[in-house]
Design a protein around this nucleic acid. Structure first.
Lengths: 220, 220
DNA sequence: AAAATCCAATTTGAATGCAAAAATGGCTAT
DNA sequence: ATAGCCATTTTTGCATTCAAATTGGATTTT
């Protein structure tokens, strides 16, 4: 089905920053870039608008959603709640094999921390969080989590990671893994919340772009 | 914008049960019923599919999503998390005026309980929950909450309310209002969770339809 | 008689066309 | 020279059209 394909591709373009926040999205240009007609593209844009990644202006086309400071705060707030819930549920339902998988990812992440390889570290980090959410065994939760994290990730142009914060994050991840292994749902929930609160502060303090009026950026 | 209008109308048809779960949705029929062409309808269906209200079958059209027992359980699980979070945030941010509003709705609900007016009771009930979520002041949270509750509401054809359960629900609402007035975020969060857990049990025990194979229901 | 196959008719998926709204550029007037 | 206004052009929104896939039934074959 062409429509799904288009949604995926455009979403990827948005998440990769190929279409920067606030950029207008001329249908015609994207059509010829994707080699499709306007109909499936417009369907895709409507879906992405429902997901909150695109903003539809009546008779004036669509633009990549731009996030205010408040939006970011709200997203993190919800993300905290979702991950805390996921953590609780995961403790009840996670299998030993899944725990082992998370532990392995954690170990790999620790190695990348040792190497100060930020990119690989982030990859493992994300994998772990997603694994915990998946272990909750709740597709509805997973879906909302994906939607929220996608919007958050969209904004992370560059988050400067101070040595201090990084060390704290690793420490928190130790606690996360520990709580998971003990299947301590309450503990895990609290740690995840704190972990995300810190990440939020990190992102918000960075300013995460968006304040600059890159008004007429184009999606070329 | 016609597209938004159509999404709203079709969503209402789905929530009102005018299009029953599992029913096929022939585009042509709905088009002439809504007096529009297929293009905006198809856009709307894609959006509703993204919301989880409609299921898209490749080359075979769309049908109203049908919920399994597991889906229902998952939805309630997430709803619990969202309302608990909303309750916590509301306690921090709710104004005295908003509390008074909830209190008034609560009083009205109690009256309807006295009259055993289930319909009006439900109306107030829903208003209260929505007011608490709104008081959290987090549009992202509100959006997800709406999406989840819409899907839940879709399934409750008839939930037989036993006198026992009803009394308990009212009692819980007393506690909810109380916690809100004391701005006891932890307490409110717990009460809301328990309240929703009970509602879930209520719905699940009722079987909430869906088990019967109303396979070829039509959206006429 | 039952099953498989083929053909017509309906329905979906995508492209194109057309009308309306908005943006752009040029022109005039002050 | 600049501000305001009008015409042109572009872009959006929706309807229509065309092609492909599916469905249902009739025919044929075993």
């Amino acid at each position: 089905m062409l429509h799904e394909e288009v949604v995926g591709r455009v979403r990827a373009m948005l998440l990769d920053g190929e279409i920067p926040p606030g950029a207008r999205i001329p249908e015609r240009d994207l059509c010829e870039k994707l080699q499709i007609s306007r109909t499936p593209l417009r369907e895709a844009l409507k879906v992405l608008a429902a997901e909150g990644l695109v903003q539809l202006l009546p008779n004036r086309g669509s633009r990549a959603a731009r996030l205010t400071d408040k939006d970011m705060r709200d997203l993190f707030e919800v993300c905290q709640g979702l991950e805390a819930l996921a953590g609780e549920l995961a403790c009840e339902r996670i299998t030993d094999a899944e725990i082992a998988d998370v532990a392995a990812a954690h170990a790999e992440m620790a190695r990348h921390y040792g190497d100060r390889d930020l990119l690989q570290y982030y990859r493992c980090n994300r994998y772990i969080h997603e694994a915990i959410v998946a272990a909750a065994g709740n597709p509805v939760l997973s879906g909302l989590y994906d939607s929220v994290t996608a919007r958050i990730r969209r904004a992370r142009y560059v988050t400067p990671m101070t040595p201090r914060r990084w060390a704290l994050a690793v420490q928190e991840h130790e606690a996360i893994l520990n709580a998971l292994q003990r299947r301590d749902s309450v503990g895990l929930s609290h740690i995840l919340r704190a972990h995300l609160r810190h990440k939020r502060d990190e992102v918000l303090q960075a300013g995460f772009a968006e304040t600059e009026p890159q008004d007429e950026a184009r999606a070329s």
